[in-house]
Nucleic acid binder design. Structure first.
Length: 415
RNA sequence: CGGGGUAUCGUAUAUCGGUAGUACGCUUGCUUUGGGAGCAAGAUGGCUCAGUUCGAUUCUGAGUACCCCGACCA
């Protein structure tokens, strides 16, 4: 992509109504546009990042047998009334049509997925099954905050699994946990599996996946030595105490953000929708349902919060909008322009995503913009590099500079 | 939802009860060119509705939007 044609521009200052780091940087760098409190549009760069986040999640869900679907987000009111959530869930957006017919906007999809599954899962032979979708969710939050981390409309992957037995759910939960940890790891994040309350959703405890950051709203107690981790709300332990699991480590307190969760929903929804399957012996049973969520937009915000430095965003390669930021410092030197165009062509041919800053701007502005945008590798083409016969390659994350020929560079990027 | 705050070109800000200025951005021209350039010329603004006043962007009230703290949070 040529930056001179890019739909958005960067700006020096963040709007004064944005306080959170993620929103300030994402707006300054042109990734998102705020529509209202808690609602953001994703512009070309932001859409690319979000799509990469989604694709990583998609790959991991597919790898454990999840089947992707796409459910409606405009919901009939009936299933919500049937489960009691119409009046019981205060974040549910309810809307009326011109003819006073009632609808809901999807804030989670149990009410929709359960009847769908009920139609196709009729035998024990159909179990287990896991279906998921990646899409928009709507929640009537009393107070939106933290930029894209807690909005009224946001992106989420939600998977629902159906099982014949509790043992099978437990088995699948362990599988999903592994897949989730893969998702975070692929984005450079370390998530802690945390015991939390099931909320109004489930009487059992749930598991949350928490990433340490001061931008988060949760407080967790975790063991320095083992993987014990618990939300402060339900903790029977205190920071400073010995870890109840390994008894070696000491518990520490930290702020964190929930980037995923798992709920054991039991048979609540199949019961509400009279969803049964035939067991081998011909008797009817309600399946056990699991719900597994990952907030995609929140994850994007978390990545910004965790990796950004004083100059701007720092994307991990796996989710960066482009792999290479090609900076041309031409000053009307036709040879430099030609060289940049040639490098751009070769990188594209090699399948490397490149943002080519071909704008007629000064070097300082281009460098500052590049650092703000956070593309992992900056490759400079200028009279200097032309004379040296090697391009200047600067890693955004480490600041490390290397000089590489075109073949070395392509070899490195396609290795 | 309780409490607090804010509202001025696209963005950030200043001023003032008497025709609103600056910086960045934008347009045009010239110069400049490896860390957000310089000069010149230009376009763009008082959230909405009432009230007070000769006159309101400024004061008052209501509304709306946004932000913060808390509560809430599938």
């Amino acid at each position: 992509m040529r930056q001179s044609k890019l739909f958005v521009k960067t700006r020096r200052e963040a709007p004064k109504d944005e306080v959170s780091k993620n929103a300030q940087l994402l707006i300054r760098a042109g990734y998102v546009h705020k529509e209202m409190a808690g609602v953001y549009s994703y512009l070309p760069l932001g859409r690319r990042v979000l799509q990469k986040v989604e694709q990583i999640i998609r790959e991991e869900m597919d790898a454990i047998g999840g089947q992707e679907i796409r459910m409606a987000t405009l919901h009939p009111s009936e299933p919500w009334k049937q489960t009691g959530a119409w009046d019981g869930v205060d974040v549910l957006f309810k809307i009326n049509s011109r003819t006073e017919k009632e609808y809901a906007l999807g804030q989670s999809e149990e009410e929709i997925v359960t009847p769908i599954a009920g139609q196709y899962v009729t035998s024990y032979k159909d179990l287990p099954v896991a279906i998921y979708q990646i899409g928009q969710k709507y929640r009537d939050e009393l107070r939106a905050k933290s930029g894209i981390m807690r909005g009224r409309e946001f992106g989420m992957k939600d998977m629902y699994s159906f099982h014949a037995t509790q043992e099978d759910f437990d088995r699948f939960y362990a599988v999903v946990k592994g897949a989730y940890l893969n998702v975070y790891k692929r984005m450079g994040l370390v998530a802690k599996v945390t015991e939390a309350s099931g909320g109004s959703f489930s009487e059992k405890i749930s598991y949350e996946f928490e990433v340490l950051t001061d931008a988060g709203e949760d407080v967790i107690f975790y063991c320095e030595n083992c993987d014990f981790c618990v939300e402060d709300e339900i903790a029977k332990v205190k920071p400073g105490e010995a870890c109840p699991r390994c008894s070696v480590g000491v518990l520490k307190e930290a702020k964190s953000v929930e980037v995923g969760n798992v709920f054991d929903l039991g048979q609540k929804y199949p019961k509400a929708f009279n969803f049964t399957y035939k067991a081998e012996d011909g008797t009817d049973h309600h399946p056990i349902v699991g719900c597994f969520g990952i907030g995609t937009t929140r994850l994007m915000g978390t990545i910004v919060e965790v990796f950004a430095d004083e100059k701007g965003i720092v994307w991990p390669e796996s989710v960066a909008p482009f792999r290479v930021h090609l900076i041309e410092i031409a000053n009307d030197n036709e040879d430099v322009k030609k060289e940049a165009a040639e490098l751009y062509r070769e990188l594209n041919e090699a399948g490397v995503e490149v943002l080519w800053d071909d704008r007629d701007a000064r070097a300082g502005e281009k460098f500052a913009d590049s650092e703000l945008m956070g593309i992992p590798l900056r490759v400079v083409v200028s009279e200097k590099t032309l004379a040296a016969g090697k391009f200047e390659c600067v890693h955004r994350a480490s600041g490390k500079t290397e000089h590489k020929s075109i073949t070395e560079l392509i070899g490195h990027l396609t290795a």
